[in-house]
Amino acid sequence: MAKENSYQEFLKADFNKLFEGMNLGDGQRHFLRSRWLDQVLWMEGKAILSRDRHYLLRITTIVGGVILPALVSLNITTTQPFNDRVKNVIIWSTFGLSQVVAISAAIEEFFHYGERWRHYRRTVESLKTQGWQFSQLTGPYRNYTTHEQAFYVFAGHVEDIIQRDVEIYATQVVQEKKEEQQSQENYILMQNTKITNMEEKKEEK
């Protein structure tokens, strides 16, 4: 968390210093700080958070998945008095680890932290690219001689990126809700099938 905050503070200070060298009006500077820079810092934080959670859950699932078969395959064959206790420890360790692996995989599947990380990273890098190109008057701003002339094109590009980000996020939320609803419907159908089979077996008896 400290590293994340320090990096964001570095970005904030670095870009603010960059803004000071631009010949812009107060309203334009306000847009740079409250719209562009605010979005860059927010998405940078979200990208880092999603990445860290994705790595934590994936590493937990992978390492746990490697250890589980070894625990399952362990066979205590000696006749020492403490072997029952060792067996109990292994059994409960296997059960506990299997639950941790299952929960980690389920959380990652539900929240899609890997996809969120890549999504936020793409968006924030697009915003940064626009900011650097605008500051240097390169790329789509190379035909302008001052930052003030290029500002409205820059503002339009920033708003396009943010709007595209919102649309993609909204689409993902809708898709996730559909998948969740489908999962619930499948679960209900499975439970109803079990109940029906049980009733049929009772009638046969």
Rank of each mutant, 00 (worst) to 15 (best):
K128I: 02
V100L: 11
Q99V: 15
T123H: 00
I103A: 11
F110L: 12
T94H: 07
F134W: 08
E125P: 01
R122D: 11
G131R: 03
W117F: 12
G114C: 13
R116C: 03
T123P: 00
F111T: 12
N143V: 12
N143A: 13
Q130R: 10
V100G: 00
S126A: 14
S126P: 01
T138P: 02
P140V: 03
S98Q: 11
G139C: 05
E108P: 00
L127D: 03
Q136F: 11
W117H: 14
Q133M: 06
A102I: 15
Q99W: 15
R116K: 15
G131Y: 01
V124A: 02
Q133K: 15
G114H: 08
H112V: 06
V101A: 02
S93K: 01
T123N: 02
Y144L: 06
S98A: 15
L97A: 05
S98H: 03
E109V: 06
G139V: 00
R118F: 10
Y120F: 08
E115K: 14
Q136Y: 14
S98Y: 12
R122Y: 07
V124L: 01
R116L: 14
S135L: 08
Q99C: 09
N143G: 05
S93R: 03
E109M: 14
V100T: 03
P140T: 03
N143L: 13
